[in-house]
Design a protein around this nucleic acid. Sequence first.
DNA 1: CGGCTGCTTGATCGCTCTCAAATGGGGTGG
DNA 2: CCACCCCATTTGAGAGCGATCAAGCAGCCG
Lengths: 241, 241
Amino acid sequence: MVQGRREPTVSLSSVRLFLGLDTQGLQEVLTWARRVERERNQSFFLQGEEAGALFVIRAGRVKVSQLTPEGQQIVVRYAGAGEIFGCVPLYGGREYPATATAVIRSEAWAWNRRSLDHLMERYPRIAINALELLGEELAQIRSRYQELATERVERRVARALVRLAAQAGKQMEEGVLLGFPVSRQDLAELTGTTLHTVSRILSAWEQRGILRSGRQRIVIVNPRGLMSLEEDLEPDQIDRL
Amino acid sequence: MVQGRREPTVSLSSVRLFLGLDTQGLQEVLTWARRVERERNQSFFLQGEEAGALFVIRAGRVKVSQLTPEGQQIVVRYAGAGEIFGCVPLYGGREYPATATAVIRSEAWAWNRRSLDHLMERYPRIAINALELLGEELAQIRSRYQELATERVERRVARALVRLAAQAGKQMEEGVLLGFPVSRQDLAELTGTTLHTVSRILSAWEQRGILRSGRQRIVIVNPRGLMSLEEDLEPDQIDRL
DNA sequence: CGGCTGCTTGATCGCTCTCAAATGGGGTGG
DNA sequence: CCACCCCATTTGAGAGCGATCAAGCAGCCG
């Protein structure tokens, strides 16, 4: 079992979207919020649904994925506690362009469009914060776009693992364990390749002692080894950094 | 020569970032603006420079591109009159993550970070509009990311041409002419491939009567033919739409 | 008119996808 | 508690898309 205990929960005051609000403001924000819970593999919303609400994760992990007209899936991102998803209502979109699924049992706050407009008008700081968050999202996806356009599969998978470890890695004695289930298929959809290729790559890394993996479970034994794959440097060069 | 006459110029009131401001507001916005002009192939700013200002295009066409550490280039987007670029100051970024180059002679307004903060505080509507613009940008790049991850080169090039034509196509007798110079290399950097592959694809299309092309010049003779390549439909199926 | 820059085209290589089949871990139901 | 089945994973073989390498060509500007 991946987690026996309950995932840590964040409080509204530590959510970046509401940074800078005073206690009273946070109180009002909370008043307008709806609480939502989803078990593992349940969805918060589906691609194509009317974009009714913005979500902030209170606890857990949410996968945002898109389905192409041809039926291929890609993973847009994994969001964790304190992060937002379903941000369509922030700007004028009508439908969700993606599906949001709980990867482990997750809780979130949700604000519908009306509440959101009201809150942003009353606390412009929220709009500013949202701008910042969208900006970072944009930078992130552009950087991944660039990698997809210019780099080989192996390096993209290495980067994906390093990012996932940074986001949700748990230090164990054997190494850094990814804190939520990630299948080969997930990694493939995250990096624009096939599960077969990912499987081969992970097998090779396992043989080289870089990581150990099982069913939807990955432990990075040698992070430096992974990073050297990102950079085309030998491990000893990394050490000198 | 591609254009003998001057490119059309937009007024501040038709810029989406300032939608909803009254005359006085627009006047004030204009007061804080700096005017910038660039000849063809000159840059507005370079990747890595301190992100001093936000730009809005008054006339012309601007290419936003990124250079990888390995020296490969990708084109993030082409922006036209009324659109914004260099939007880093809107959120908290320190450096420009990309380079902005005038593809044809271009004019822009620029606002430095201080002016921008001042204006957004005084006219929160600007922040809301910015949110909307960033949201659309995000949707656009995600869709391109998805295409890059799941589609073949030929289709990606077809999509790129259709988009460019929609953005800046000029109806001529022979077909739709792209209104600014686009090289094979540019198309390659826009679609994540090489200029060789683009060249082969365009040659094939020219033979099939879909387009005609020359040095940095493309005329789409049969738009339906192109669109059928996007959809994996035969041209007659497109006709029935 | 010359040179530079962008374009074309051939040949080859190899990364990655595709197709196929077998394996095994783990959860579930009896 | 055990057996079964599902689904994630592994691994092999082969094909092919598209990159890479290598010349040669042709507009266009100065």
